[in-house]
Write a protein that binds this DNA or RNA. Structure first.
Lengths: 333, 333
DNA sequence: CTGAAAGCGCTAACAC
DNA sequence: GTGTTAGCGCTTTCAG
């Protein structure tokens, strides 16, 4: 910048003013512009951030980007961040607590403008309250705003849809990590609906699919049970806590001679599309990814620019049922 | 840092030395450590970057993250970057030239350590040669290192696999953007193999699937043609330039009463898995995503830390054929 | 091994 | 409107 100033025969302040859109005499502006072009000058953001004590970087911390749901979410978050001129620093935690903490540390070091996080641990308690943070899905400390799908409603909805299809018995397949409250909400909604409707149900649990061998053997075991229940109770409804799990059960049930949806109706959760322009295949309780992203970025931005911080924001996004290949199509729909 | 120094009764230089792992007297180290903990001090990376004139951020610019292939790639890139202690700034260009350029500008402003880019434009010509860059897939300026799948070999391989399955006639479906040289390589390999084997073939082109209506209507039109060719020539082999396109043709062909793979054998390109622990479904020429990512990060790191810059690095990663549901399973395999 | 001090590139007072 | 200058928080000589 000093060089530009020298070359254009003006002071650094003038160059700075020009760069920041302040009023500059037209002839001088011309000269400055020319010098910048000549010297290929680009402002150093590190110095700017240091001086201003603020950056336009937002850290986005999530378990993985390698799944339709999370990659779609990443897409929307990035898009809305970009609209407001934020850059995204991506942090993939793989649900590893240490890595999550290291991303928080990094965020503080970088003096990021804010953090958007999806974490199923108590990550947020490591974030200083002076740095704006919005959680997606889970937050239990009450210290930060939260954007979440209506998991409880989703669980209820899944049960309702299965019951509409005359299932005689329902099954929920959840995940092991019981600290993960959204999953508990899905289960609770499902169970409540079962009880309200007076239908019998079973609850199963699978480990994370990352522990592949364990996961597979558990799926196999549960599938055997489901086959047995089917033989005993007839038409059956299965609701899994994620689409990924549903895919595995679909495969395994079919391998055991079960027809889907004629014998067993199957509903997953998430509804992320693999590509931007394809349709989703299996029946699922869909999260409204775009709205979640929009809200998260909006709230974060308000926290960053606004003086008023309302940390008790709890925004619940409705879910919808998607009629796909794994449930019977109803006439009235 | 000044505060820490004051609190610990030492100079800022000592604190700095401690933070950077230089030798410090044990008793002093203890005091400093305590003060840091007490004051919740975290080093300001902006100041550090300014002073050192280097950062540990790498910009990763790619068209989208919302597809199995790209999300898997993002996963691996991020993973290898993290191993070397780099942070990732994610830039999603949506193949938009202006956005690509804005990410480059941002990268320079941020004085990032380097850039990894997947671009089908002449993006790289906007990157100053003093900033390390590795391209994935396409690079034609020769100014920067390149990591790419063996697209030509992939095209050949696709044709070979189709011929093994006794296809009487082959079809290639490419994309409109003919500046995109990797796609041309896929086509060239395919065509060369067809000619070598003396089999007839047709070349079709579809627009980007982002232009959905146009894309769909083109798929419909080409499908009609394929059906006709099938009736005339019998067993048919279709190779599409991406898995996404293959999915659309699979749907459309089936809607037209074509059985896959009995009537038409279908091979896509990419082979990205939707989830980390699922298997891929359809037949495809798989890119070795992990190896691509590993090489890209490795080369970039060498460019950053090493003095020697060999910009003529061209690393070609082999592809493999994945036997999925859309081609006939051969006995010898 | 530690401290004092210079200075990275920028912005924002303040004086002109 | 423009120039001068202090100082953001850090690293890094250079003395001691």
């Amino acid at each position: 910048m000093k060089d530009v100033a020298k070359d254009a025969n003006v002071s650094v302040a003038t160059v700075s003013n020009y760069l920041n859109g302040k009023k500059v005499r037209p002839d001088i502006e011309e000269k400055v512009k020319k010098s910048i072009a000549k010297l290929h000058f680009v402002r150093n953001d590190a110095a700017r951030a240091l001086k201003m004590n603020e950056s336009k970087c937002v850290a986005f911390v999530l378990p993985t980007v390698w799944s339709p749901f999370f990659s779609e979410l990443t897409y929307w978050i990035q898009r809305y961040l970009n609209e407001k001129d934020y850059k995204m620093i991506l942090g993939i935690s793989e649900n590893n607590y240490e890595r999550e903490k290291s991303y928080v540390k990094m965020s503080i070091e970088q003096r990021v403008a804010g953090i958007i996080s999806i974490s199923y641990s108590d990550l947020n308690s490591h974030v200083p309250v002076n740095i704006p943070l919005v959680s997606i899905e889970k937050e239990d400390t009450g210290l930060f705003p939260l954007v979440s799908s209506d998991n409880y409603g989703g669980g209820k909805l899944a049960a309702q849809e299965l019951l509409k299809r005359s299932c005689k018995h329902l099954v929920y397949v959840g995940t092991e990590n019981n600290r993960y409250s959204p999953m508990l909400a899905r289960q609770a909604g499902f169970v409540d609906q079962c009880n309200d409707s007076g239908v019998e149900y079973d609850i199963y649990t699978v480990p994370s699919s990352r522990k592949r061998a364990l996961f597979e053997s558990e799926v196999t075991k549960i599938t055997k049970d489901i086959v047995e229940i089917h033989q005993r109770a007839g038409h059956l409804g299965v609701f899994t806590y994620s689409d990924e799990t549903a895919i595995h059960f679909k495969r395994e049930l079919r391998a055991n001679g079960i027809r889907i949806p004629q014998d067993v109706e199957l509903i997953g959760f998430d509804g992320g599309k693999p590509y931007i322009n394809t349709e989703f295949e299996n029946s699922s309780i869909r999260q409204d990814v775009q709205t979640i992203a929009m809200n998260a970025v909006e709230i974060l931005d308000e926290q960053i620019v606004g003086t008023m911080q309302n940390n008790s924001i709890r925004r619940m996004i409705p879910v919808t049922f998607f009629q796909g290949a794994t449930t019977t199509k109803l006439n009235q729909e």
